[in-house]
Amino acid sequence: MPQTHTQSQATDTVLDRYIALMDRAVHDLGLLDEELPSIFAPDATVQLEELEPVTGLTAITEFYRRFYSHAGDNKHFWNTTVLEDGTLEADFIVAGRSRDGHLLARRGIEHATVNADGLITSLRATSTAVGEN
C-alpha cells in the first residue's frame, strides 16, 4: 500500500527535501549549489510544465538559478506518496507574490524517480493556476 508523508512530518523523502529547498532558494540562491547535489543525480532530468527538459546537474542548477532570480516570495504545501513502484508523487499547492506584487497560486503534481543512491533521476511537474490577482 502506498505510504503518504506530509510536510508537517519529517521531510524524509528526497522529493520532500527538493520542495522545501525551492521555498528557501527563493531567498538564497546559494542554497542551490549547496543542496542540489544531494537531491539530483548528476545525469538527472527535470521537466516543469511544457518547458524543454533540462538534463544534468549543472544545467538543472542554472535553470533554477534563472527561474528563482526573477521570482517573488512563495510557499509550498504538499503531501508526498511513495507509490508501489517506488516512484515519489507530491500533490502540491504553491502560493506567492510576484516581484511586481501580483498574487498567484498553483496546484499540481510532481513525480520523481529515484536511483539506488536516493537521488532524483527524473522529475516531472504539472500544475494549473488556481487564481491570480
Rank of each mutant, 00 (worst) to 15 (best):
D12C: 05
T45S: 14
T45G: 02
A20K: 12
G131M: 09
A112V: 05
P42F: 04
A116N: 12
L103G: 13
T126H: 10
E89D: 04
D16S: 14
G56A: 06
V94S: 13
A125K: 11
K75Q: 15
A59R: 11
T121A: 04
Q7K: 12
N115T: 05
A105E: 06
G72E: 07
S69D: 14
L31D: 07
E49L: 14
R124K: 09
R24W: 03
L48G: 02
D23R: 07
D100A: 02
F40S: 10
M1Y: 03
T55N: 09
A95R: 15
T58A: 15
H5G: 03
L51S: 13
P2G: 06
S69L: 09
L36P: 13
P37G: 08
L103S: 12
E132W: 00
E49H: 11
A71Y: 02
L104E: 01
Y68D: 10
L29F: 01
H111V: 00
P42K: 13
V130N: 03
L57V: 01
D117R: 10
G118H: 10
Q47G: 01
F63N: 09
L21H: 09
T87E: 15
V54N: 03
T4I: 10
F92R: 03
L51D: 15
R107M: 04
K75H: 15
V114D: 01
L51W: 08
P2R: 10
F63D: 10
T87C: 10
R65F: 00
D23H: 08
P2T: 11
A129W: 04
L51R: 15
T61V: 03
P42R: 14
F92P: 08
P2M: 08
Q3S: 09
Y64W: 14
I120L: 05
R17W: 01
I120W: 05
V14R: 15
V130M: 12
D43H: 12
E52G: 03
S122T: 06
G30P: 03
D16F: 04
A112E: 00
G86I: 02
H111L: 14
Q47L: 05
F92A: 05
Y68E: 09
F67I: 06
S122C: 08
T128H: 08
A129G: 11
I60K: 09
E132I: 06
